[in-house]
């Protein structure tokens, strides 16, 4: 029982770090990294519950989630590279033409 709690605690901490990163950071790369942290926090939860319930479905799901996260990161970084070529910056504060 206490095992599960410690895993969940770790996950919650990682998640919070990620959320904090997204809100405070300006560099696109750092924000993407923070998103990865949040995703992995969710994965930790999945695996923890899966192990706790003795049901492998959660672990399979986590694997899927990792694969998708990899794809998402690839696209995210590709976008940042293109952005950098066009705007010479990846500071998201300066990339705000899509607004009122």
């Amino acid at each position: 029982m206490s095992d599960l709690y410690s895993y969940l605690l770790v996950a919650a901490i990682v998640f919070t770090i990620g959320a904090y990163g997204i809100i405070t950071q300006r560099s696109g790369i750092k924000i993407l990294m923070s998103i990865e942290l949040m995703l992995n926090a969710a994965n930790i939860n999945l695996v923890a519950f899966s192990s706790f319930n003795g049901d492998t479905a959660g672990q399979v799901f986590a694997l899927f989630s990792i694969a998708i996260a990899a794809a998402e990161a690839a696209i995210g970084f590709a976008i940042l590279v293109v952005l950098f070529r066009v705007r010479d910056t990846i500071n998201l504060d300066n990339i705000n033409i899509l607004r009122w």
Partner: peptide, 14 residues
């Protein structure tokens, strides 16, 4: 309402 759309990612995340 459109003023809410600031274009700053951090605002949306918050």
């Amino acid at each position: 309402v459109r003023k809410l759309q600031t274009g700053v990612v951090q605002n949306y995340a918050s």
